[in-house]
Design a protein around this nucleic acid. Structure first.
Length: 268
DNA sequence: AACAATGTTCAGTC
DNA sequence: GGACTGAACATTGT
């Protein structure tokens, strides 16, 4: 489920993995750790420590130091479509909370795509059934726009409206602003009563400001309530669903290459 | 059985 | 260069 709110939760979990000596690293999943060959990330980290956990949009990265305390490489962590960060103590108990979803099915060990073991017996792992998450050294953040939680109204307006593309495609474009995913985009557009397919450069100043306000509100609500799936329109995104405000039918289509639902009456 | 799913990236095309 | 499409990744759920 990771969009900005979930990734921020994961970042906080990751903070529990800081300042502990790294004694071994399993980086053998060549897909998740690409382009690094197995062992490369391990060599870069073993003996050192993670010292800070940052986030911009859906991308996280840790600062590191080596065994002598000198600056080490940054470690990029991306959850992809369904990855989770899990940190445990020396008794295997979860620390730092995070999604409390009890596992209904037994967890296969191979779903741990990357693990860092600490000298104190603790462990950090990227748990990711779908293998769409990613770990890499020195991740390139230059292609990311400003974080959706931090962008100003004025910056938001200019960046979104700079193109003819559908406004939803602009919201999803991580180089325009970072952190909005498919569900949050639908929730935001529904709250703002704007058609997802509307050309971004044809939105009025009023609409852009309404979009901005509703993005910030949807973001706050998602953080407070535990994730983007708690959005007001999310449970109505299905065939036969109705708008929870006006009762009109919800319509489905593809916008910006992603599955999209909108209210036929309020989002014309 | 077929198809869609919260994300990114890359190749190909217009 | 910009924008769009489809594929790839592996698994689950409808």
């Amino acid at each position: 489920m990771p969009e900005l709110p979930e990734v921020e939760t994961a970042r906080k979990v990751l903070e529990h993995a800081l300042d502990r000596e790294i004694c071994s690293v399993d980086d053998n999943d060549e897909w998740v750790c690409r382009p690094h060959p197995p062992g490369e990330i391990a060599r870069a980290l073993v003996g050192g420590r993670l010292t800070a956990a940052h986030r911009r949009g859906k991308t996280m990265w840790c600062e590191t130091v080596d065994r002598d305390g000198a600056e080490g490489p940054t470690l990029g962590v991306h959850l992809g479509m369904g990855g989770r960060v899990i940190v445990t103590n020396d008794e295997g108990e979860r620390v730092g909370g995070g999604p409390e979803r009890p596992d209904r099915r037994p967890r296969k060990p191979e779903w741990d795509r990357f693990t860092v073991d600490f000298a104190d017996g603790g462990r950090f792992r990227l748990f990711d059934k779908r293998r769409l998450g990613r770990i890499r050294l020195e991740p390139d953040l230059s292609g990311l726009g400003p974080d959706a939680e931090e962008i100003s109204a004025a910056d938001f307006r200019t960046r979104i409206a700079r193109s003819r593309s559908a406004v939803k495609a602009r919201l999803l474009d991580q180089s325009v602003l970072a952190g909005v995913g498919n569900l949050l985009a639908d929730e935001t557009l529904w709250r703002a009563r704007i058609n997802p397919a509307a050309p971004a450069d044809e939105l009025s100043r009023t609409q852009l400001d309404r979009l901005y306000r509703n993005l910030e509100q949807a973001l706050q609500a998602a953080v407070a309530n535990g994730g983007v799936h708690t959005g007001e329109v999310i449970e109505h995104r299905h065939a036969g669903g109705h708008c929870p405000r006006c009762g009109a039918e919800m319509r489905h289509g593809t916008v910006g290459g992603r599955s999209t639902w909108w209210c036929t009456k309020e989002q014309q």
